[in-house]
């Protein structure tokens, strides 16, 4: 693709204190791309995502959102451009599912009056799109982990930002919901043009649903490209330290 990059990490090093968690990582995300970030635990994937969304300031290098450094943009401007699926947090109070999803409109709605008609439409659209219509009216704290995960994805979808970032979106889902979530991401990407960056643990899902795979090991990006080259048997053995026969990837088709 030769589209203008919307999100760029340029030779980024991130660390807490002395220890560097991400070292010299360069990643360029073009508008409309669908990227899976994979790698063993502790490889720095989530840390890189946090820097990409402006939550962490890199020790060296820069993050650019649509060409301008992300730091001075301000949290609200970033939130309009990048939606991040929230971590599964405990809710302190009773909240209906639609009230939770409506939180995704915070970066857009006027600060005092709250939801406008357009915001309500976006909330309804997100609920329908993610397929959690049947959960309306339920207390979000009563939901199963999988249902809650879908509701939180709906929060990010309601944010209607051009970039959607997910950190292990399928962690709490059963196989059917995993596949449905992946299909939703593909749909958001292909139909709406939403740029998607997702950290995934399941290599099969990543290889099947994502045309571009970025592999991280020990804080460095070691491979970046289509699954056929980044997730071949040799890579799986060296990166993840497992017998490739254990991970049957649908690479032949890609």
């Amino acid at each position: 693709m030769t589209v203008e990059p919307v999100l760029v990490a340029d030779r980024v090093t991130i660390g807490y204190g002395e220890r560097a968690i991400v070292t010299d990582a360069t990643l360029s995300v073009a508008a409309g791309e669908r990227i899976a970030l994979v790698g063993p635990n502790g490889a720095g994937k989530s840390t890189l995502l946090r820097a990409l969304t402006g939550l962490l300031t890199p020790r060296a290098g820069t993050i650019r959102l649509c060409g301008s450094p992300i730091g001075p943009l301000g949290q609200r401007a970033v939130a309009r451009a990048i939606a991040v699926v929230p971590e599964l947090a405990q809710l302190p109070f009773e909240m209906l599912v639609e009230e939770v999803v409506a939180l995704g409109r915070l970066p857009h709605e006027p600060p005092l009056t709250g939801l406008r008609a357009t915001d309500r439409l976006a909330v309804d659209a997100a609920i329908e799109r993610v397929g959690v219509e049947h959960l309306r009216g339920r207390d979000a704290r009563e939901l199963s982990m999988g249902e809650r995960q879908l509701v939180f994805i709906a929060v990010a979808v309601a944010q209607s930002a051009p970039i959607l970032i997910l950190d292990e979106p399928t962690a709490h889902l059963d196989i059917r919901h995993q596949v449905e979530t992946m299909e939703l991401l593909v749909d958001l990407n292909e139909r709406d043009g939403t740029t998607i960056v997702a950290v995934l643990h399941d290599l099969a899902l990543a290889a099947h649903f994502f045309p571009r795979i970025v592999v991280m090991v020990d804080g460095r990006i070691v491979a970046d490209g289509p699954p056929a080259t980044t997730l071949d048997g040799e890579a799986i053995r060296s990166v993840f330290g497992v017998d490739p026969a254990l991970v049957r990837l649908p690479i032949g088709s890609g």
Partner: peptide, 23 residues
């Protein structure tokens, strides 16, 4: 006047920042 930020904090610190709240 700042209640919007409190709404953002309902889903946790990180989510609040992702929703545009200067935590």
């Amino acid at each position: 006047w700042r209640a919007r930020s409190l709404d953002g904090m309902l889903l946790g610190d990180q989510a609040a920042r992702h929703l545009g709240v200067d935590l």
